[in-house]
Simulated assay, not measured.
Amino acid sequence: MFFRPFSSARIVAAAVTMGALALFSDVGAQAHGDGHRMPDHLGMDEGNAEMAMRPDGFHYKRGHHAYAAPAVALRDRQGRKVDFADLMATDRPVLLNFIFTSCATICPVQSATFGQVQPDLAAIDPDYLMVSISIDPEYDTPRRLREYAELHDARDNWVMLTGQFDDIFAVVRAFDAVYKGENKMYHRPLTFLRANADARWLRLEGLLGAEELAEEYAKLLKPEVN
């Protein structure tokens, strides 16, 4: 593994990691009733996880998991209907994360990483799909997602999705992506990678820089370099 000099995004990521992780309130859950609260976080299988170290000393967790994409209808940033299960049936490599556009802490770092890594991914294998799903669908309209996409120079193969709360909730639950705190939702810095439709998902928990994410992508597609 090789390391490049620290980028500004990596410095920001390290600073954010030193502080509190992003929180998003349970206003949406309260509005939809207790039956629609996000579930308690189930946690990663400790027997199926390993730690990786970034060059600035921050550790992130890696684990392979089988996640089934729910058949729900979401909307992309052009307002078009997207069947999530059909989208995930692609045999292309997929990178997926959960964000919300009003987040001021880890989401900007994760989205900056997705934005900056695009040329590196294309150099490794250009036939990839990036997916960012809003966990604040009531605020994140397609128009706001378009603005967010422009902010991060999203290419055409970076899909941003919103939708109805229940449908977003189904995707979040399927990927075991959040957990419920006492009065807050704690949005975790998670990135999911998959080599093809038959492969298990690689779950990365922690704030990665573009270099680390590109390396994980390369290893995923070319496991012989591990």
Rank of each mutant, 00 (worst) to 15 (best):
L213M: 10
E215M: 11
N226L: 11
N48L: 07
L96N: 08
G57D: 09
A149C: 09
T162I: 06
D136R: 01
A122L: 01
D76P: 09
E46Y: 02
A68H: 07
E147L: 04
D167E: 11
Y60F: 15
G206W: 09
C103D: 13
A199T: 01
F114L: 13
P108T: 09
V171Q: 01
H41L: 12
I106A: 04
G79K: 06
A104V: 13
L221V: 09
P189W: 01
L161H: 09
R143N: 09
D26K: 12
A154V: 02
A71P: 03
N97R: 01
D166G: 03
T191L: 06
P39N: 08
L74Y: 10
N226P: 01
E216A: 14
Y60R: 06
D76E: 07
Y217I: 11
L74E: 08
N183I: 01
A71R: 08
V172N: 05
K184T: 07
R200Q: 12
M1H: 09
A104E: 14
A154Y: 11
L204D: 03
D26A: 12
A49P: 00
P93C: 04
A218L: 13
D198W: 08
L161I: 04
S134V: 05
P5I: 10
G33Q: 10
F2E: 15
Q116G: 01
L202D: 08
L74K: 09
T141Q: 08
D166C: 00
E147A: 10
R10F: 11
A122P: 02
T141A: 06
F24E: 13
V16E: 12
G43C: 05
D120W: 13
Q118I: 01
L23H: 09
A210T: 11
L221R: 13
A195N: 02
P142Y: 06
G209F: 08
T105Q: 05
E150L: 07
L220P: 09
V16F: 03
R62S: 07
P223T: 08
A199N: 00
A31C: 01
F84T: 05
P70Y: 04
T90E: 01
L121C: 03
F58Y: 10
P108N: 08
E150S: 08
E138N: 08
C107L: 05
V12I: 14
N97K: 01
A195T: 04
M185F: 14
Y139I: 06
N48C: 07
L213Q: 03
